[in-house]
């Protein structure tokens, strides 16, 4: 333990620099070199930590924050009402949308009277913080444990509704994310962002 009170060490692991004179054996450097080589050699036979990606995938946590999904409700209608809270809460300003009014013959497509005709997320700006998911009052947007694939062009990273909205025949399961605590939290209208 360092007795010098002027130097505060939080971890207590810091080593003081010493410029002591090296002994004769140390000055040959060869023992130190052999020590280093034995360390690398021990790594040579250690098991590789590589995960061979396309064949083997790292198991993601259920609440992993990856590619977004715009959920449909049980009847296959879009839940999003284009309120813009997600865009407002987004710290990276990655979300843009254009709202439109639902026509009479579109009732089976959109749940609310107002819907997002354009909904875009710029995946290069997005920091996958999940604030949009927290902000959404309609439980329309969720982050999922899918990942955003790489692209060749920057414009390809602006994901529109064609990618984001889940397909009716291939629903994305987000039930794991909606833990009772989350649902309880979302009900609480006194919390500022749920107002």
């Amino acid at each position: 333990m360092n007795q010098d009170s002027t130097k505060i060490s939080l971890t207590n692991r810091s080593k003081m620099v010493s410029n002591k004179k090296m002994t004769l054996i140390e000055r040959f450097y060869l023992p130190a070199i052999f020590k280093g080589m034995s360390i690398t050699m021990s790594h040579f036979f250690r098991k590789e930590t590589t995960i061979q990606y396309p064949e083997v995938k790292r198991p993601f946590s259920d609440i992993y924050r990856g590619l977004h999904v715009l959920k449909l409700d049980d009847e296959g209608r879009e839940r999003c009402t284009a309120c813009g809270l997600c865009a407002l809460s987004c710290p990276a300003e990655a979300i843009t949308m254009i709202a439109a009014e639902r026509k009479e013959d579109e009732k089976q497509l959109y749940r609310e009277e107002k819907y997002a005709s354009v909904y875009e997320i710029n995946m290069l700006r997005c920091i996958f913080c999940g604030d949009c998911e927290t902000a959404c009052p309609k439980e329309a947007i969720f982050l999922t444990n899918r990942i955003v694939p790489s692209e060749y062009k920057r414009t390809n990273f602006i994901y529109g509704k064609d990618v984001l909205v889940e397909k009716a025949d291939a629903r994305v399961d987000v039930s794991k994310r909606q833990t009772p605590e989350v649902l309880e939290f979302k009900k609480d209208k006194t919390k500022s962002h749920n107002k």
């Binding site: 790594h43 590789e48 930590t49």
Partner: peptide, 8 residues
């Protein structure tokens, strides 16, 4: 180099 660094 890979093996020394626990890679493949």
């Amino acid at each position: 180099a890979g093996f020394f660094q626990d890679r493949l």
